[in-house]
Nucleic acid binder design. Structure first.
Length: 495
RNA sequence: CGAGGUGUAGCGCAGUCCGGUAGCGCACUACGUUCGGGACGUAGAGGUCGAAGGUUCAAAUCCUUUCACCUCGACCA
């Protein structure tokens, strides 16, 4: 793309805008390997921040990390009927274990003599391999609850891919827990949904709606799927995390029983929950502007960048010394900073570069400033600049500003979502709203049937994103069929 | 799998209709002037034009085949 298209109403332009941002911020690039991307150091740094914070939240809620195999024997996957049906269409399969030189002299070929007895599936998710392991780990109620998380890569052979939002291979975490009672498992499901919601809002500054999926959108093999849904700047919804109550489906499929206090054998109750590098995409699409990324300070790998301005060696030394002096003070309070000492780039270049990378605060330090004992503070989110006097409270003020940027970004995104969420009461209204440039969330009555949901999807591409938690009950008629309805649900076009 | 489109220097592209031996911008190298919002000048380096075959005195350009990638759709916790 020759120039930045900016936020436009057309889907294709938004898509180009998004790709351009990711590329210019130096986060990731297409690897050339079918639907897979290379996550570059800057993009990975953002993911690492997310990992660290989320992992702490998992630990605080009693979970531990473990690691299970990448390969899943085909037979494991077929043990839970709904699960295999849901994932069968998108699995990469390992059929051979050896290559050999091409007899025609053209590189290598798959050795036909090295066919696997049983094919291995590259995990699209790990329920099956984990439950086949849990069978050996669980005998008694004393072994429960089992609260395990793993950080891993998974592969889903989707037909259409997008950087971060849907890549063939992606990084994620998946939690898999086993419990003695249904109540406990449901409680865990809701606890982790809450963890995701807190993470999205407090760390990524993405306001989300917590809700439950309809049977149509439910995870393959789950009794209930809960989710957090965010709204992107083009008015499409994005699922930012899911938490599933799996009932006893996997326990039964993998024969995982425990002896209760009365010494009776029972199947265990399960949950699973996951979130992925898709969150990086969600953050980009929620906050960025035409100048590039806008990172919430909590996730930004660099929170403050110092740009020294100078014309000669003497000025270079003076401004760099000043930058380093204040940077060291910031280090003491844990602010993540960078002093841009690159002598081959001019200040104007650096300003643009760090804007594209979304660094929340830029501090420009030139001889003119130092003469006045001040520096120029530029906020990435609002694109404003002001002069601050240097003093004992300077670092403290920067920390306060970072906190305030974090909050304001969340509020700005929330205001956007509120202004793009509305109630619709007739089918004409619904169709008109969903066709708008920035459609957003539509709150509408639905008769509760899968058939109606499918019909609406076929006619408008809108799906039910979720039934919000604590949804107010209200008598009404289905927006599509006119049949009686007890509550409104949230519709949107989705990624 | 359907519909469009693109493959020419590291990146972005022109040249293809009408055949004549490859060009522009950015980036890169050197030197100088610059340096508070993506600097400028001069000089320089870099390409078997996606691949294979054919037509021709001559092919990036015409013909045939093929491969790859992109966008949209179908698909998608």
């Amino acid at each position: 793309m020759a120039k930045t298209q900016g936020l436009t109403t057309r889907e294709q332009n938004f898509s180009e805008w998004y790709n351009e941002l990711v590329r210019k911020a130096d986060m990731a690039e297409d690897s050339g390997v079918r639907g897979c991307m290379v996550i570059k150091p800057y993009g990975y740094g953002i993911w690492e921040r997310m990992q660290r914070i989320m992992d702490d939240m998992f630990k605080e809620t009693g979970h531990v990390n473990a690691y299970f195999p990448l390969f899943i024997p085909k037979s494991y996957l077929s043990k839970e009927a709904d699960h295999v049906e849901g994932f069968a269409k998108e699995c990469a399969v390992v059929t051979h274990y050896r290559l050999k030189a091409d007899p025609n002299g053209k590189g290598v070929i798959v050795d036909p003599d090295a066919k696997l007895e049983e094919e291995l599936i590259v995990r699209p998710t790990s329920e099956t391999i984990i439950w086949s392991t849990y069978k050996n780990w669980i005998q008694s109620y004393r072994d429960l609850p089992l609260l395990i998380n793993q950080w891993a890569n998974v592969v889903r052979w989707e037909m259409r891919t997008r950087m971060f939002l849907r890549t063939t291979e992606f990084l994620w975490q998946e939690g898999h827990t086993a419990h003695a009672t249904a109540e406990e498992a449901v409680e865990e499901t809701m606890r982790m949904l809450e963890v995701y919601a807190e993470f999205a809002e407090n760390t990524l500054a993405i306001p989300v709606i917590k809700g439950v999926k309809t049977p149509n959108e439910r995870f393959a093999g789950a009794l209930d799927t809960y989710c957090i849904e965010g709204l992107m700047q083009d008015g499409k919804a994005l699922q930012c995390g899911t938490s599933h109550f799996l009932g006893q489906n996997f326990a039964k499929a993998f024969d995982v029983k425990f002896a209760n206090r009365e010494n009776a054998l029972e199947y265990v109750w399960a949950t699973s929950w996951g979130s992925s590098t898709r969150l990086v995409g969600a953050m980009v699409m929620t906050h960025s502007d035409d100048q590039g990324l806008v990172l919430p300070p909590v996730v930004a790998p660099i929170q403050v960048v110092f740009v020294p301005i100078y014309r000669n060696e003497e000025e270079q030394k003076v401004t760099l010394d000043a930058c380093n002096e204040w940077a060291q003070k910031m280090k003491k309070v844990g602010i993540r900073f960078k002093v841009d000492t690159d002598d081959t780039k001019k200040p104007g270049w650096k300003f643009s570069e760090w804007e594209q990378k979304g660094v929340p605060i830029r501090i420009a330090v030139g001889p003119r400033d130092l003469a006045n004992n001040q520096v120029e503070i530029a906020r990435r989110d609002l694109q404003t600049k002001e002069l601050w006097t240097l003093g004992d409270d300077f670092v403290e003020k920067i920390q306060t500003l970072l906190d305030s940027i974090q909050l304001q970004m969340l509020e700005k995104a929330r205001a956007f979502r509120e202004s793009h969420t509305r109630e619709v009461n007739s089918w004409e209204e619904f169709k008109a709203a969903i066709e708008e440039d920035i459609p957003g969330f539509l709150s509408a009555h639905w008769d509760g049937s899968s058939e109606t949901e499918t019909l609406i999807k076929e006619e408008t591409k809108a799906t039910i994103r979720c039934i919000p938690l604590n949804n107010p009950q209200e008598a009404g008629v289905c927006v599509r069929t006119g049949k009686p309805s007890t509550q409104r649900v949230l519709f949107a076009k989705a990624y």
